[in-house]
Amino acid sequence: MRTAPRARALTALLAAAALAVTAAGCGSAAEEAGGGAPRKAPEGRGTGAGALTVTHLKGTTTLEEPATRVVALEWTYAEDLLALGVSPAGVADIEGYDQWVTGGPRFADSVKDVGTRQAPSLETVKALKPDLIITSKVRSEANYDQLDAIAPTLMFDPYAAEGEYEEMRATLEKIGTAVGRQEAAGAALKELDGKIAAARQRLTDGGKDGAAVTVARGYTTDGAAVVEVLTDSTIPGGLLPQLGLRNAWTGKADAYGMSKVDIEGLKPVEESTLLYVAAKDDDVFATSLPKNALWRNLDFAEGGRVHALDPGTWFFGGPFSTALVADEIADALTS
């Protein structure tokens, strides 16, 4: 599922971030439950009045001063840094980020690619001499200690079962604390709230209050179409009620907040409107699925209520991506 998405202009957010970027996402129960002793400042460097303490999945990490050389091993947190006006020292899989995460500014040429998100190069990370690493549970649970030996490492869970939307907001604020940009975090969230309110107003004006919506993504694996429906625990699931909409899907969530279904599994939500993301060169909703009579007989297919969102709409990102999700949903339902 790799494709070059069309650019989206999130004017207020982009302008604020572009001005702030330098050269150099209510805490979930999962975060607050993280055990372990606080991470101390390096030996010989006391924690003075300027010390910063951040709570994350591994407990608490205390920094002597705001971090300035940050490596992000998950796209969500790389986006968060840009939203805070901080250019990261290193990011995992920059090419993939540019393809899938189209909301917000791009990384400066000086930002180093440190390998894949699942298996970053520890040697490359260490060579950057970071004073902070930010990663996710799903990527780095196994090698957290190795990362933490290189630099203080914050671990969060972007797929928190308690709600990815609230997790995104809380994590942005915590990263803002770690890099000394708490005010920027508040401003980014305020801008996001404004974008959501504007999208809701468009939906209200278009007579879509209370509309039932199903949000999905699709792709091909081993020659077969795969459909994953997003539950209430995801960012789109958290956005829908704020947009005055209703998530028609009530299925059980997997570890990422989605439900993998076949065509028959979509029968309970066929009277809703289906909004989806798929790669332009692998759009199963426009190619393989319509060849199946079961799909063609679903009410949303018969009624023309199946709408593609921009392929670069990333459902698992930070404030830029979340604003883009809201904008794309409003566009799809009112155009």
Results as ranks from 00 to 15, higher is better:
10 L>A: 11
129 K>C: 08
313 T>A: 10
32 E>L: 12
316 F>W: 10
194 G>L: 11
326 A>V: 04
291 K>P: 08
71 V>Y: 03
84 L>Q: 01
181 R>T: 09
172 L>Q: 03
110 S>T: 15
85 G>Y: 14
63 L>R: 01
322 T>N: 02
283 D>F: 12
301 A>E: 08
101 V>E: 03
48 G>R: 07
251 G>P: 10
59 G>F: 13
289 L>G: 11
305 R>C: 11
212 A>L: 12
203 L>C: 07
139 R>Y: 14
231 T>E: 11
20 A>S: 10
12 A>F: 13
178 A>Y: 10
21 V>A: 11
191 E>V: 11
71 V>W: 01
215 V>W: 02
273 T>V: 14
268 P>S: 08
250 T>H: 08
14 L>M: 13
315 F>I: 14
231 T>S: 14
261 V>T: 04
63 L>K: 00
237 G>P: 12
270 E>W: 10
294 L>Q: 10
308 A>M: 00
146 Q>M: 13
331 D>C: 04
242 Q>T: 05
114 V>M: 03
176 G>R: 01
205 D>F: 06
47 T>Q: 14
276 Y>N: 05
322 T>R: 02
235 I>Q: 08
30 A>E: 12
278 A>T: 11
22 T>C: 07
108 A>T: 11
297 N>C: 14
214 T>K: 06
190 K>Y: 04
136 S>P: 00
35 G>R: 13
267 K>C: 15
244 G>K: 08
100 W>R: 09
81 L>F: 06
197 A>F: 12
297 N>D: 13
182 Q>L: 05
57 L>R: 06
254 D>R: 12
268 P>A: 06
111 V>W: 05
243 L>C: 05
172 L>F: 09
213 V>Y: 07
281 D>E: 07
176 G>Q: 00
